[in-house]
């Protein structure tokens, strides 16, 4: 392989999250050393993924099938839709195994400072899905940030005309968290959301 091709590969790899130019060169060397066992299968897997994976037209999830596996799954609860910012959040909820309903990927949050408005998010798709008869609850699982909560309020207003219950995730003390180390905002939210122990 010519030097220019190695440089090009290193340059492309350095654009990946967590990699800089130096670590990209180390990855290139590692791939070159394991050409048969790693580099070629990796290249093949990437080609296949690039050609087959797309966004689900229903929920926005990434999958090789369209509609995605979650939207097609017959045993999932059709009455609940969990709204998340992006696919990473959907994966996090799936890892927890706590939610067995359907999802809707919004594609970000509203941001006054970055000029990101409702038109840039997949809100119309959500409103269409909320109109379906079987949907009873929309769970807004968005970040506990100013932008995330602004989006929650906006979506709540948009969904006010639909006959669905709209809920959002609780904010409070994390599992394994000590009150001593919590920030004021989390403590305030936890106190506001306290519930009876009986």
């Amino acid at each position: 392989m010519a030097k220019s091709e190695i440089d090009r590969l290193a340059q492309l790899l350095s654009r990946l999250p967590g990699l800089g130019p130096r670590s990209a060169r180390r990855v290139v060397l590692h791939l070159m050393k394991k050409r048969e066992s790693l580099m070629l299968p990796l290249a093949k897997a990437m080609m296949e993924a690039a050609s087959s994976i797309s966004n689900c037209t229903i929920c926005g999830n990434l999958d090789s099938e369209n509609p995605c596996g979650i939207c097609q799954h017959p045993n999932r609860d059709d009455s609940k839709i969990c709204v998340v910012e992006d696919v990473g959040d959907l994966w996090a909820l799936e890892r927890s195994g706590a939610f067995k309903g359907r999802y809707h990927v919004l594609g970000g949050t509203l941001s006054a400072l970055d000029g990101r408005g409702p038109a840039q998010l997949n809100i119309n798709g959500l409103l269409d899905r909320a109109s379906a008869d079987q949907v009873q609850e929309i769970i807004l699982a968005l970040s506990a940030t100013v932008d995330g909560q602004t989006t929650v309020h906006y979506l709540s207003e948009c969904l006010a005309g639909h006959e669905v219950e709209v809920s959002k995730l609780a904010h409070g003390v994390p599992v394994g968290g000590s009150l001593d180390y919590l920030d004021d905002g989390t403590l305030t939210a936890a106190l506001k959301s306290r519930r009876s122990t009986r």
Partner: peptide, 28 residues
């Protein structure tokens, strides 16, 4: 370091949260 976490206290108040964000955007 945080002296006062105001935004966290306004999470459940859509109007006040919008006022905070609007003021920040105008100031910027």
């Amino acid at each position: 370091e945080v002296l006062d976490n105001i935004s966290g206290r306004l999470f459940d108040e859509p109007g006040r949260l919008a006022a905070l964000l609007s003021a920040a955007a105008i100031c910027e």
